[in-house]
Design a protein around this nucleic acid. Sequence first.
DNA 1: ATGGTAGAAAGTCTA
Length: 265
Amino acid sequence: MMKIATWNINSIRARMESLLRWLQETAPDVVLLQETKCLEEQFPYEPIEDLGYNIAVFGQKSYNGVAILSKKPIEDVTKGLPGLESTEARYIEAVIGTVRVASIYVPNGQDIGTEKFAQKLAFFKALQSHMATLLSYGEQCVMGGDYNVAPTDADVYDPEKFQNRLLASPEERAGFQSLLNAGMVDALRAQFPEDGSANRSFKNEARYYTWWDYRQGSFEKNHGLRIDHLLLSPQASDALKSVGIDRDPRSWDKPSDHVPVWCHL
DNA sequence: ATGGTAGAAAGTCTA
């Protein structure tokens, strides 16, 4: 059994207390981190290594930054999304045992119609192409990250309000859907279908969302979105035992605005 | 519609 989690930590240096607590409490085998927000030489390796993790980092000053933590050795590390012209640290991929993993930080997109929004759509295009390549290998593959898209209205606390809004627009959803069309499986959706057939009550539970804005008391009102996802290749999906969202860290002192999503293979 | 909060870093920029 292998527990793999993804977490947009919103600055690893500001979040060390929460990260170490969460690692000790939940003992994931692999962690895919986003928004570490520091250069590789600034990364706080030691306290994480002391808990038994190997670490691979793709860092950047102030913004972005992705990393992989793993109890087992990390092999064949790739930094940067193949096929995308960009200097931003938004993609790191590696092989751990028989599983290929990636930590992905899709651009936020700022506002619909902006240059950054176009870059977000371009990122999805390159990601779709690369995922299609990886899928052709027939491996167990877990691509986790902050995709910055709520795939359906079921993933938004107020669908009406989010119609044609950033994170829920048809264009962004088409970008995310293209990954599923290529053959990837949304792990949480696989276990908790939108129609509620697996668990009728789950979509109304607070655990369902992965991000709550810092502003306007969003967490207290449960005004959240599900924008962090674990996408699995069919071979990984066949091995999927369970999936969940760790809501607790959002209520801790100095929280990230995102919470971890995990799966057991 | 605006601006609300948080992080990095010292200006605002990004989310």
